[in-house]
Design a protein around this nucleic acid. Sequence first.
DNA 1: CTCACGTTTCGATAATCATCGAAATATGAG
DNA 2: CTCATATTTCGATGATTATCGAAACGTGAG
Lengths: 116, 116
Amino acid sequence: MQSKQAIGALGALANEHRLALFRLLVRVGEEGMAAGAIAAELGIPNSSLSFHLAHLNQAGLVRQERRGRSLIYSADYAAMNALVGYLMENCCAGADGCGPEAACDTQPSSQERKQA
Amino acid sequence: MQSKQAIGALGALANEHRLALFRLLVRVGEEGMAAGAIAAELGIPNSSLSFHLAHLNQAGLVRQERRGRSLIYSADYAAMNALVGYLMENCCAGADGCGPEAACDTQPSSQERKQA
DNA sequence: CTCACGTTTCGATAATCATCGAAATATGAG
DNA sequence: CTCATATTTCGATGATTATCGAAACGTGAG
């Protein structure tokens, strides 16, 4: 990860609505969520939400996928992990307890199944 | 960690100079670094640097300590860990490979010693 | 085709933020 | 005390950002 990318990602997250939005997507996982559903969940006007979604998308933190008439958004875990790694790089000059071990798999494990 | 704190921290990091500054402090560890030394290292005018240091400090990401005529700044690892934890909270709805495991100890291990 | 639905773009406005020189403050030395 | 050093505050300016209604766009259904 490079500086400009990290700044973009951090700036994208440094906003009340976008942070809530990103954390929501982090929670729901790969399944993602439609723009309208997000707007309803967060209580933000559509046009405002669209602005924030575009911001997060262009920062590389969320991905977009069309399903029918809806656009499904989901968090990009790889980008999140890269950002955290970048923040903690060379932490404590390489001392013992330090270093980014955080990770969220893109494939959240196959022990869960949904039926609707 | 609460939303407003996280937004403050992310906003503080979402700037070219402050990100470089914070990462520099993360690298040097507990020892910290004087304001003037940082300004020289990063090539930023003193007044600008002071602005950014205050920003990071008020966001809770760095700590300030006076040593003689100098003010020594150091990264607050606890705050950094808390921020990362907040970002990854409930990642993937609690699936396996996920969750914030990252950590930088505040005491980087006692195998180093200074003599001045 | 026409219609309805979901989402984005446009546009104007208000608010926040970054920059840096000059002046002020705080600490220590002699 | 005076002087030198280290850092912060002040102040004005330019740049970026958030907001949201209205209108446009893209998609699917009948």
